[in-house]
Nucleic acid binder design. Structure first.
Lengths: 341, 341
DNA sequence: AAACCTTGCGAAAACGTTTTCGTGTTAATA
DNA sequence: TATTAACACGAAAACGTTTTCGCAAGGTTT
């Protein structure tokens, strides 16, 4: 390939103006066929491609969408990204991925950077620290700047924008219900601290399911796990160390479920004979653990597709008063080996 | 926040020229202190930030680096990305991530797009299809266009550029040697088809280790697994169905290892008592499977850091005749429960 | 012969910034 | 008083593109 070539260079070659070249390449009727052919052939030979930066500046858009996620080393988020990438690419958009590392400050920094003309719109799943701080002004600023925003999975109710969420309550309900259906009498939940919204919602589903059968809620069976509290294995062990140990465990993510299975084994309990385990997120762990994990599938790919579609719709629409939606992606219980029957 | 503000708007406010505003904000000595203060205060109030697109166009660089990976839903690649992101952000660069989905065509498309002024340099791990086709002209074109390129993990020898690779041979050697050390007499390898370079290299390490003890290579113990050949569980089962079934298994990735453990269990074999298993890549599966998996750690994060450092060095250096390096990231064997002793 | 239309192209503005090079005013120096 | 220096600012080019408008030459219509 030859060096990058510009309109100016082509124009010099034919001793015509830059405008003429530009029009010729766009097959404008204003330019004679003869000249058009020559210019096109030349441009083709040198693989001319309009410079993206110049186009961006002129059009005041970048055909790029930004994604801010808490963590990329996380199966669920990567499936969402895949979904986003898929439809974005299809529509001629590129994606720029940033990580907040669950930090409020980095989330703000990333947004600032992306908002500064780098992307046309932003898709975000908010950092835990932001949820905890309840500091949302950066989202408001973004919106008031006219930059479309879509939130997914971890969303903020106070912010008015398009959202895509998992039906977390229903997922928790589904899982817990299934445990009850297969005969579990004493069901524990391994969840996150309350400020992690999705964990809290899944817990609500758990409670709802128990209440639907008039089973009293036992606080000892609600174990809030967090890396901040130290070793998570130690914390999960506590769920088993009860006068009346659980025969069913609903974990709000894969990792807690996997650790629960390991803990059970260490205690001489068999999964699923002695204790059934259900996780959340259908990731690699669920599929490849032994026994494989019954889990609540979140359909991250579909979430990503939906999120970017909402964003592109907003970008395409000229109307200023858009009715924002919250799309709910339903969950599915995937039955595997970690539950009886 | 108020709407995005430009130099022009500020200049109008103070009835000075755009140049004056630009200089004032850069604290130029050419502008009187009085005016500087006023302009700065005003700009501050309106959160003025120079438009990235304009800067990019002017500076002919974007402070962005592109990454092309085969798949994002893959723990190893995400750790590499994390490493890249980390040092890139530190140096004021952003990253743009594209996926080839193991497709040659998409790899070329992505490169084309990124090369078109969108990024200052590219970090790539090549798609399987590209390796298979041995079609590398898009890399050559990129380099001849003066765009720095760094390859990692899956690299192409024929292309002269900076590279960062895992010591795959040594990793395979380490794993196999360990299996021999703990007394395995009949060691099978679950590997990929030959055209997947890294799989082939790990196999070479396996062979090297066996040969170091004068153990003859048994082709029946070399099982080449691929999704293309159908269900991988079926293929892996064959490794066990031999007159002389293996007592040690080295899998060139986590998934094959996990499936091997499951297959063993299904056959009534205990891991590690009856058969020891070692995987490759220290991902979630390795850490959270039961038994947890002894594995060869690849240090993806370090690879990412190294790769982006090489890229930024090349971007910073003016010299045209750079000596390209191939950095080798050593592997570590992480001992867990899937191997005896 | 005058008015008009068509064809084919160029000039210039616009996107937002930085930077080099003037230039006019005032103050200090010879 | 005449020259020079310092100061404070503006004009313009540059990055690469698209697009509107203008204009000349030639042809066609009255």
């Amino acid at each position: 390939m030859k060096k990058k070539i510009t309109l100016k260079q082509i124009s010099k070659e034919f001793e015509v103006s830059i405008s003429t070249v530009s029009k010729a390449l766009k097959d404008s009727h204003e330019i004679s066929n003869e000249l058009k052919e020559k210019i096109k052939a030349f441009a083709d030979y040198y693989h001319y491609r309009p410079n993206s930066l110049a186009l961006n500046l002129r059009n005041q858009k970048t055909k790029t969408i930004g994604i801010i996620i808490p963590e990329i080393v996380h199966h669920f988020f990567t499936t969402v990204i895949s979904g986003i990438e898929h439809v974005a690419n299809e529509k001629g958009y590129n994606v720029m991925i940033c990580m907040s590392n669950e930090s409020y400050e980095k989330e703000v920094l990333n947004m600032d950077m992306l908002a500064n003309g780098v992307v046309d719109g932003i898709i975000v799943s908010v950092a835990k620290e932001t949820e905890e701080k309840e500091e949302y002004s950066h989202f408001k600023d973004l919106i008031s700047n006219g930059i479309p925003l879509v939130m997914f999975d971890r969303v903020i109710n106070e912010i008015y924008c398009n959202k895509v969420i998992t039906n977390d309550v229903d997922g928790g309900y589904l899982a817990t219900k299934h445990l009850m259906n297969i005969g579990c009498k004493n069901i524990a939940i391994l969840t996150t601290p309350d400020y992690v919204t999705v964990g809290d919602l899944r817990k609500q589903g758990y409670i709802k399911a128990l209440q639907s059968r008039n089973i009293p809620i036992d606080d000892n069976l609600i174990v809030k796990v967090s890396e901040r509290y130290g070793d998570i294995e130690e914390q999960i062990k506590k769920a088993f160390d009860q006068k009346n140990p659980p025969d069913g465990i609903f974990a709000v993510n894969e990792i807690y479920a996997a650790v629960a299975m390991k803990t059970a084994k260490n205690k001489g309990l068999n999964v699923p004979e002695d204790v059934s385990v259900i996780g959340f997120t259908d990731g690699l762990i669920s599929q490849y653990s032994t026994p494989s994990l019954t889990t609540v599938a979140q359909h991250g790919y579909a979430m990503g597709e939906k999120a970017v579609k909402l964003l592109l719709d907003e970008l395409d629409s000229q109307e200023s008063d858009i009715q924002y939606k919250t799309e709910i992606i339903e969950t599915d219980l995937i039955l595997r080996e970690s539950t009886k029957e």
